[in-house]
Design a protein around this nucleic acid. Structure first.
Length: 576
RNA sequence: CGGGGCGUGGCGCAGUCUGGCUAGCGCACCUGCCUUGGGAGCAGGGGGUCGGAGGUUCAAAUCCUCUCGCCCCGACCA
């Protein structure tokens, strides 16, 4: 490609509303253009990267045995009503009406469509297993889109769905996708980690997220320093060591202290001159099985997913002021476990005492509370978010915190959709059974952003070679110098013949300008050709990532480049 | 949805508080000269109903009311 004719305008200055590096650089490098909040056009340079990622995904999905389909983005409400999600999906589902006033939505995901498609086509155990996938635009009306295409409302997604006759087979399908994902992200040249994830209240029973590691990632991951355990903070377990509840209470009964308008952990600690860890927070939750209290140390956070599982409830939300008053007899900020007559769950990390807690009375807290002596606790469980330094649940190691960007998610769905939507088949015994499903997503556009987030410096993008729009940029310093131009052009033509994606900066610009652009758009290798170098019979190859420069004679350009690129994940036809 | 901020040429901004000649600057763009190893220089030039609507005023980018859009923080969230 000739730079002079390419639809690509770089920007010298940072766009005002771009915060994170990938967003800033994608705009500056002319990869994307915003049309509306969270809605972007992909310009030629950006699309080249997106297509490279798509190609890798296609190859690995096909290799895993999955078959590509293409489903509509516009979906009728009927299938969503059938699955039960029309009423639960919420505002993220963009709904609209057609001219006949019928309800439709723009698909945020395709479980309904694929299940509908499969149920009429597959009827026998002999038809299974099947895994289908597509690469297509999704629409989710995010409350707050941000970071460019990282969290966009319309985005490219690869979604796959597996259908199996039994758990054993479903396990294999899941494994196959998990392996395919590892290969995909490896081939994209990304540093990533597969972590255990929470599958939510109505999802399946097991899931993994694939995280691209980057300090600016939105997700917090806890990873063991010793073994390979890693999990999203939503899911991360803490080694359960039941702290005995010894009767070691000292002193008299709990002592009430006047704490006028002192509510938050911070306020109480400051007022009483204590540390948050010597305070018990009493969080009141409303669930489908009634109101409950969760006790947790002042410096910890309740993990609602864990609490939900521990309580065995479907829904769970923080109680409002009115419910708190009803349950505790006091406004928010003064709840405590002493004398509380609702279900109480205690976090396993709590000691027995002495603790400060709310007094269930406005403007009062109590000191010297010993949990075993002074409260009636139903159970003790792991209900808090893990923190760096916590014990690994699998080995004697400690957990560390790292940040990541979720680019893929593999899920065991079970029979959630096949049951409600009657995707059944006849098994060997002639029995009608629901298919076991799995679903597997990759945020294709997010992979591009994440790659840049992980690979950039002060000068711009440093594309991993396999997803770089161009592997090499040929840069004649003075396009008007006959020898420079023809040498550059010859090398360009030679490289192109090998099937490499090559860009030649044939623009009539000063060298500094071209260097800056080449760095900004992140081409992995730059071949610089100038009259001074040619006078000594030399040109140079510079690696974007390292800045390493190799001086060679023009005739060796092809061989040197192909040697450099060998084994780095791209295909070169070096016979030419 | 709550809090904060911002809408002035393609991009980044000044001007708004304190209304007043033709709305300005840098980058980008066009023409010419000059220049070619890290975003050069000189000269000339094109492009903006100042987000929109209404109002106040002799006069509005500037003041008032309404409205739309965008960004950040938070809440929310399969």
């Amino acid at each position: 490609m000739k730079f002079s004719v390419m639809f690509l305008k770089t920007m010298k200055e940072d766009p005002r509303d771009a915060e994170v590096a990938s967003h800033r650089l994608m705009l500056r490098a002319g990869m994307i253009k915003k049309l509306a909040s969270g809605i972007y056009s992909w310009l030629p340079y950006g699309l080249l990267a997106l297509k490279k990622v798509e190609k890798i995904i296609r190859e690995e999905m096909n290799a895993s045995g999955a078959q590509e389909v293409l489903m509509p983005g516009v979906q009728p409400c009927e299938i969503w009503q059938e699955s039960g999600r029309w009423n639960v999906y919420g505002k993220e589902l963009l709904r609209f009406k057609d001219r006949k006033n019928a309800d439709f939505c723009l698909g945020p995901t395709h479980e309904e469509v694929i299940t509908d498609m499969v149920r009429s086509e597959l009827n026998s155990y002999k038809d299974l297993p099947v895994t289908l996938y597509q690469i297509q635009a999704k629409f989710r009306d995010e409350i707050r889109p941000r970071f460019g295409v990282m969290r966009a409302r319309e985005f490219m997604m690869k979604d796959a769905y597996s259908f199996d006759k039994d758990d054993e087979s479903a396990e294999k399908s899941y494994e196959a996708q998990y392996r395919a994902y590892e290969k995909i992200f490896e081939r994209c040249g990304l540093r990533f980690k597969a972590v255990e994830a929470d599958s939510g209240p109505i999802g399946g029973n097991f899931s993994h997220e694939f995280m691209v590691l980057a300090d600016t990632g939105e997700d917090l991951i806890l990873s063991c320093s010793e073994c390979n355990y890693a999990a999203n903070v939503e899911k991360a377990e803490i080694r359960k060591q039941e702290k005995a509840l010894p009767v070691k209470a000292t002193g008299g009964s709990p002592e009430k202290v006047h704490t006028p308008d002192i509510r938050t952990v911070e306020e109480v600690c400051e007022f009483l001159g204590i540390e948050p860890s010597s305070l018990v927070k009493t969080m009141i939750y409303n669930t489908d099985k009634g109101i409950v209290a969760a006790l947790i140390r002042g410096d910890h956070e309740v993990n609602e997913a864990k609490l939900r599982r521990s309580l065995g409830v479907e829904s769970l939300e923080l109680a409002d002021e009115e419910m708190i008053a009803k349950a505790t007899g006091a406004p928010r900020g003064f709840a405590g476990p002493v004398g509380l007559n609702i279900r109480i769950v205690r976090d396993i990390s709590l000691d027995d005492g002495p603790y400060v807690t709310g007094a269930n009375e406005q403007d009062y807290h109590v000191k010297d509370v010993w949990l075993s002596r002074d409260t009636r606790i139903e159970k003790s469980d792991d209900i808090r978010n893990a923190l760096p330094g916590d014990d690994c649940p699998r080995c004697p190691g400690k957990l560390e915190a790292i940040r990541g960007i979720e680019v893929g998610h593999v899920f065991k769905l079970g029979t959630k959709y096949s049951k409600t939507m009657h995707a059944d088949f006849l098994d060997e015994k002639g029995e009608l059974k629901p298919m076991i499903m799995g679903c597997y997503g990759i945020g294709v556009s997010r992979v591009v952003a994440a790659a840049i987030e992980q690979n950039h410096d002060g000068d711009g993008i440093i594309f991993p070679l396999p997803i770089a729009p161009f592997a090499v940029i040929v840069l004649p310093l003075d396009s008007r110098n006959e020898e420079v131009a023809s040498t550059a052009n010859n090398i360009y033509m030679e490289l192109k013949k090998t099937g490499l994606d090559v860009l030649i900066d044939d623009r009539d610009l000063r060298p500094g300008f071209k260097f800056k652009d080449a760095d900004l758009i992140g081409v992995p290798y730059r071949i610089t050709i100038g009259s001074k170098g040619l006078a000594e019979g030399l040109i140079e190859i510079r690696e974007r990532a390292t800045g390493n420069v190799t001086k060679i004679c023009p005739a060796d350009a092809l061989k040197t480049i192909t040697d450099m690129l060998k084994g780095k994940g791209i295909i070169i036809d070096s016979k030419n």
